[in-house]
Nucleic acid binder design. Structure first.
Length: 253
DNA sequence: GTTGTTACCTGTACGC
DNA sequence: TGCGTACAGGTAACAA
């Protein structure tokens, strides 16, 4: 499931490969993936030149000579160079020097013209964040997952950051010192994950089909009933904000 | 405006 | 082996 570190890894690979390239044609094999687009990308994109590729939260933004294209990988989206189309290929971008496939088994991802959805997001989680933004009544885990507060954090890194900060996922209205500690943990865990090219938990791979390795460093996520790496207490799993949530009942208060 | 719940979607794991 | 069911979690839409 691509969160900020996985998308950052992909964007770093896409940039050098796409900058300056021209889009020759686009074939949309599954119309559902363009459900958010008010413009038909198959007719709008051919002939356009790619200026740059950047990221905001979990969104990939491809800057063109006449606007931009936004890609969200959802749960299972993949962008692959030099790959053969398969049963889950949802779109094929033919460029002047090759092709780029968009594969997505569950089709939670989306491709659209413009940046309407990106414009509504909160600040990127890797930028300077204000602890005041975390001052909310909802469970702190739900606050971290709220992309309008700040964008890029998903279920894995929310659990990992809360563990490092020693904060229980169900805490509410946390104090400023605790919020500052949490923001530092968010920054630390995201940067560490980027160094390891993200976490490959289900089927995340980069543009060359390679897996990340940060899942080997998870301290709580997907470690239910295993001993806490700090105190040995079994890691518990509960549901918070409708998501599987892993934490150490002793280390996190 | 804020918060919580549900739907969408399909592969995988599990029990029978 | 084959079938049915639960689960995983990204965002959007809806209800309270």
């Amino acid at each position: 499931m691509p969160e900020l570190p996985e998308v950052e890894t992909i964007v770093r690979e896409l940039g050098p490969r796409l900058r300056g390239r021209h889009i020759v044609s686009v074939e949309v094999l599954q119309p559902r993936i363009t459900r958010h687009s008010t413009v038909d990308i198959a007719t709008a994109l051919p002939g356009r030149r790619i200026h740059d590729v950047r990221r905001h939260g979990k969104f990939i933004v491809v800057d063109l000579d006449n606007g931009c294209l936004t890609i969200h990988l959802g749960m299972t989206g993949q962008l692959l160079f030099g790959s053969t189309p398969g049963p889950y290929t949802r779109a094929i971008f033919t460029l002047d020097d090759g092709s780029l496939l968009y594969d997505d088994t569950r089709m939670f991802g989306a491709i659209e013209m413009g940046s309407a959805r990106v414009d509504r997001l909160g600040p990127d989680a890797l930028t300077e964040l204000s602890p005041e933004a975390l001052k909310r009544k909802a469970h702190i885990k739900a606050v971290l997952l709220n992309q309008n507060v700040f964008s890029g954090i998903g279920n894995i890194y929310a659990d990992e950051a809360l563990f490092r900060a020693g904060i229980k996922p169900t805490a509410r209205n946390i104090s400023k010192p605790r919020a500052q500690k949490l923001l530092a943990a968010v920054d630390e865990v995201l940067r560490e994950a980027i160094e390891h090219r993200g976490s490959s938990v289900s089927d995340y791979v980069d543009t060359e089909g390679r897996r990340g390795s940060f899942q080997q460093r998870h301290r709580v996520y997907a470690r239910e009933n295993l001993p806490c790496v700090v105190c040995g207490t079994p890691i518990r799993k509960i549901v918070v904000a409708g998501r599987g949530t892993h934490f150490c009942p002793k280390c996190q208060r």
